[in-house]
Design a protein around this nucleic acid. Sequence first.
RNA 1: GGGCGGGUAGCUCAGUGGUAGAGCAUUUGACUUUUAAUCAAAUGGUCGUGGGUUCGAUCCCCACCCCGCUCACCA
Length: 543
Amino acid sequence: MTIPNTHNGIDPDELAVVHACRAWPFEEARRLIARLDRLGGDPQRPVVFETGYGPSGLPHIGTFGEVARTSMVRHAFEVLTEGRRKTRLVCFSDDMDGLRKVPGNVPNGDMLAEYLDKPLTSVPDPFGTHESFAHHNNARLRSFLDQFGFEYEFLSATDCYRSGMMDATLLRMLEVYDQVMDIILPTLGPERRATYSPFLPVSPRTGRVLQVPMVERNAKAGTIVYLDPETGEKVETKVTGGAVKCQWKADWAMRWVALDVDYEMAGKDLIDSVALSSRICKALGSTPPEGFNYELFLDDKGQKISKTKGNGLSIEEWLTYASPESLSLYMYQKPKTAKRLFFDVIPKAVDEYLAHIAKFPSESPKQRLENPAWHIHSGHPPAAELPISFALLLNLVSASNAHDAGVLWGFIKRHVPGASPERYPLLDKLVGYAVRYYADFVKPQKQFRAATATEAAALAALDRALADAAPDATAETLQNIVYEAGKSNGYDKDTLRDWFRGIYEVLLGESQGPRFGSFIALYGIPETRRLIADGLSGRLLAA
RNA sequence: GGGCGGGUAGCUCAGUGGUAGAGCAUUUGACUUUUAAUCAAAUGGUCGUGGGUUCGAUCCCCACCCCGCUCACCA
């Protein structure tokens, strides 16, 4: 998937109607344009879109959603402004944050325990592959984003603090310290209120990020004074150069100001935080970015998805059974509605995505701008023609017991004469997904059983008959052979149904299956004979 | 309590200021020398309630009811 985010090649017909387009990325872009108009300022300054990331965990489906959606707004903005404004998408990693607790999903957890509260960039990498735990997770984040082709700039909080990029804003924060306290303190419980400070000094003695109250402040010198929680000594430290980091709501505001952030989305659980950070941002003398609150995802039972619960669907799971484009579509649709995110939404998303790219070329400019595929592919969806839907493919793979792409293609060709992987490369990808679906969902459901004496005799007869069958026998001929093997071994017109059910249960592990003559033709006569042998010997049962 | 989202067919959900849509489910038919699948068709809705704006409201506005999520410690 490519999200080039260039304004190049804007269709003039589309441009003519873009101002009437109500698709949400355009509505967002318009709010952003209104902000820029309000603010005035340098038209040469790049417009900054930010997404934030906490490197104590791994990137997940929400990370994808936020970057994908932000990229859609960014592209809509570039089209609306006809490329006259430069844009940047900053992916900011809050990697100076202290290690709160030892994550359960990493090796060498014991080793990590002694680094609690140290900045994540000062915690050794438990995987042993990077300079620090944060570096490791940052790298994971970047390769995660890169695999989708997102265009972004990565920024490390630690680098930003240490480089002095934040210094001016940090000094400003010190000047308006009282205002910041007035904003935050009323929102805190009494316990935290006693210790709160927008500045979290990094102890020169222990290297830990401290949550301690300030006992003195010197705005002119740019320093703060606190008591070392263990020694009780007074410590004076600069707020600049990475000697302190900000508590997160202050940090967010500080970042907006220091990086000139114009647009940032957040989940709706952060609505209050955004409001507080915005007030701090104003206290710093700046204007908070335009924001957008997207809904959280629910699992199949309508419960909130949480990583610790492990409910819902991971991005790995989605990408195992469907394309990133289908996931982009899911993210595009109704960002403000709480949507269920579980396996069953995947086939629908895939088929809707396919339908959108299929109808795109014949649509009017206005329709194209409201076509999700336009937003998923930055205005240029690929051409695509699909003879069958993904939902049908999943049915086919289950019904036909097609355990590999070749067999499945055999069934597809019966269904759609002339189809081939070369002619329908996109369908071939879907075939790959369908086969995985089969392996993971259909196959485990199979329940093989031993053949009864009658079935064993009939199967043996079938095997002998197949041995004599022409290698190129038609499905029709093979179906007759199956039929005969049953009729001459204890089944009659009324019980023939049992014969077929027996075949499915013994050989395929299901009580229903494909038309068996067709199955043999596609699966192969020698292969079918081996399957019969395995069924009779009990090997299928054992496996 | 504050904030947000939702209430449309049996189910899951689209959608639009002008005769209401899809998928699944159900029913029927076609094709199959068993099924499944597939194909065709049909059935099915006072668009949460009450007002308002309008020639006209499921859609816009107001109020209300119900459901869900979220925040109130930390990030």
